[in-house]
């Protein structure tokens, strides 16, 4: 281990301060004595992001095809979406701030920023419900026209992924006390969270700019 002093006894061995490329030699490092190329968890996460990307690509190709039909009637973006977008962006920023504080051993500050990131994320989800309410009040429902169908469906699928992220957030929050600078937990979560931010930007672009 490069910095054994940072290792928390509660953490599995082999996960010191080099989380992303921890190469554990044959027979060494404790439980896992295969030759590990990349951190499997991080790799698995990226593979998962790949399959989520394919899901949204699938939806997008359907969207493009459907948009070409004669009955296409665009709906206006509810203004609250811009607020939501800001919340989600700030949530990512807060998460990065938390990671930075944690690396700098400012554990209390890190916890604060982490909590803020979660709160902002939850704010985004609530805001999305607000957007749906706004549309419903305008008489724009799921089945009103193809654009509204896609809007509800795509935002719904995105919110589901975010909700999964919030469950993950809670799981980390539950053991926040034991979080140490060398822990990759925040890094993994941040990867997923930022990815959902990018997906949101992509959806906004596809739904309202393209």
């Amino acid at each position: 281990m490069a910095t054994p002093a940072l290792d928390d006894p509660g953490l599995p061995p082999g996960r010191g301060s080099l989380p992303a490329l921890a190469v554990v030699g044959h027979g060494g490092g404790g439980g896992r004595d295969s030759q590990v190329r990349f951190d499997p968890t991080r790799f698995g996460l990226w593979a998962f992001l790949g399959t989520i990307s394919m899901l949204f690509i699938g939806f997008t190709s359907a969207y493009m095809l459907r948009r070409a039909s004669a009955d296409w009637a665009p709906i206006a973006a509810p203004p609250i979406l811009w607020l939501n977008t800001t919340l989600l962006a700030l949530s990512s920023v807060a998460l990065e701030a938390a990671r930075q504080r944690l690396r700098a051993w400012k554990v209390t500050a890190a916890r604060g920023f982490f909590g803020l990131a979660g709160a902002l994320g939850a704010g985004f989800v609530i805001g999305q419900f607000g957007a749906w309410r706004t549309l419903r009040a305008q008489g724009v429902f799921l089945a009103t026209n193809p654009h509204s169908s896609f809007f509800y469906m795509l935002t719904g699928v995105h919110v589901l992924h975010l909700a999964g992220g919030l469950v993950w957030f809670l799981a980390i929050a539950a053991r926040l006390r034991r979080l140490t600078p060398g822990d990759d937990a925040l890094g993994l979560f941040a990867t997923y969270w930022h990815f959902l931010g990018f997906v949101w930007a992509y959806l906004l672009f596809v739904l309202f700019v393209l």
Binding site: A47, I52, L55, G58, D71, L142, P146, V157
Partner: peptide, 29 residues
């Protein structure tokens, strides 16, 4: 599987919406 199954997930969801929530992804005029 990771690259191709999401297409069916998307399509199944759209089919479900067409069946139960009145959308018209796959049903023509």
């Amino acid at each position: 599987g990771l690259l191709s199954f999401p297409a069916l997930t998307a399509a199944s969801l759209m089919l479900l919406f067409d069946r139960h929530f009145g959308t018209s992804f796959f049903i023509p005029s």
